[in-house]
């Protein structure tokens, strides 16, 4: 299981891109940290999530 924003999710084995495609997140409006390190945008398609990974997905909304 992978912990995504504190919630256990069955996402091990999926790439970051594959996991995001299963969610409501807009990939142009997010930043993703995996185990405390930024996942480069260019690496979403090749970064495979593993059991016990901690994923933090920050989704930006407009206004400033």
């Amino acid at each position: 299981m992978v912990k995504v924003n504190g919630v256990e999710v069955d996402a091990a084995g999926k790439t970051v891109s594959e996991y995001i495609a299963t969610t409501e997140y807009d990939s142009k409006r997010i930043a993703v940290e995996r185990n405390g390190d930024i996942v480069f945008k260019s690496q979403y398609a090749v970064t495979v999530l593993e059991d016990d990974d901690r994923l933090e997905i920050v989704s930006f909304v407009g206004g400033g």
Partner: peptide, 10 residues
Amino acid sequence: NAEAKAMLVN
């Protein structure tokens, strides 16, 4: 702008 925010943060 949300996309500009994400661009800069990333």
